[in-house]
Design a protein around this nucleic acid. Structure first.
Lengths: 194, 194
DNA sequence: TTGACACCACTCCAGATGTAGTACTACGTT
DNA sequence: AACGTAGTACTACATCTGGAGTGGTGTCAA
């Protein structure tokens, strides 16, 4: 019989995300989740019918953590609306990801796993589309410089920069990383006239 | 005793790359490689001392396939040296990757695996650095418009575009994909004066 | 004849799964 | 207050799966 306790279910999903990042998609076993969550063996079996349920629910869960919290969002609505501001936001973004390394790595693992699981692929596709749309809409509404295309291109460049940094941190030095962020903004966002 | 036959070793590595793409890093077992290469069980055990050797050698091998062949390189040295040319090359790049889906997915799997294996990480880091340097040098020498920074930013954007397309093909439509390539070139490469 | 290799077969081992069985807790009933 | 019940937590078990490695034999070529 499937257990319902929502607190425990959430804890198991968080544990699953940790396992995903540390052991990879294939390493995500029911028993590994049990161990990570420090619950008795067999517990995860009682909460999820199969691996597919576990993976898709974990995919959904990551986005609950990945969305920046309210204060951050509010703060980003204050201050000047110029190119320098955008650069600041991009630096924040890259920094924030580094702070949630686990979640982002798990997301990459899930992307690859989605190659083999149509259900997971559908869930991720929807969430990422929504995420992109949100970013674009937010940018435009906030009056920051740069059109939708510029935001998309920034999204592409920053995404790969983050992957590079998370998986092979020695390809770019910390300095190069910062420079690339600056550079991307400088080339993609138009200068604001005073 | 470790076998030496280089043709067979190469065949095994290519099989390993297939398995990586299809089953993921964790699915890469000696037996799976045997099956993929259609050789008797136990063969891969005889050619590689351990999984680490198999993974790092596979990582090295991918780049042998990934480098564009001589005719392509030669062809890219002919023709005009303008922005439109760069766009054409970028379309080629994205298309070529789609044609070697297996190899690129395997490379992503290896990147994630590199998170856990210092040896593999070192190998990949070197190869990717070299690859980037080559690209930049080639671009500059060939007289195409755009400085080193522009090439780097193009590299970032194209890389993620490819990942997006390989893992979640429904996030961008085929049309959007082409537009994003055009857009990236248009914003990152300066117009050439006649 | 010798050395390297292909192929086959067998044993051993580790890890994962799902569930039966038992104990505990909370809550509602009488 | 005693009781019954539902939902869980926890333990332990029986089973299953697949992979690893290796020894042995046959083959080919130098």
């Amino acid at each position: 019989m499937i257990r319902q306790n929502p607190a425990r279910r959430a804890a198991l999903l968080d544990a699953a995300i940790e396992v995903l990042a540390r052991e990879g998609a294939r390493g995500l076993t029911f028993r590994a989740v049990d161990a990570q969550a420090a619950v008795p063996g067999g517990t995860t079996s009682n909460y999820f019918a199969n691996r597919d349920g576990l993976l898709t629910q974990a995919g959904a869960r990551i986005y609950e953590h990945l969305t920046p919290d309210a204060p951050t969002m509010a703060a980003s609505l204050t201050g000047p609306r110029d190119r320098k501001r955008v650069a600041g936001l991009m630096h924040d973004l890259v920094g924030r990801i580094a702070g949630y390394r686990t979640g982002y790595l798990a997301l990459l693992e899930l992307r690859l796993e989605a190659t083999r699981r149509p259900g997971l692929r559908a869930v991720l596709t929807e969430q990422i589309k929504a995420n992109i749309d949100e970013n674009v809409a937010y940018h435009l509404e906030s009056g920051l410089p740069g059109d939708a295309s510029a935001v998309l291109l920034l999204y592409l460049a920053m995404s790969w920069l983050i992957v590079e940094q998370l998986t092979l941190p020695d390809v770019f030095t910390e300095t190069q990383l910062q420079e690339l962020v600056e550079l991307a903004v400088a080339r993609l966002i138009p200068e604001t006239e005073e």
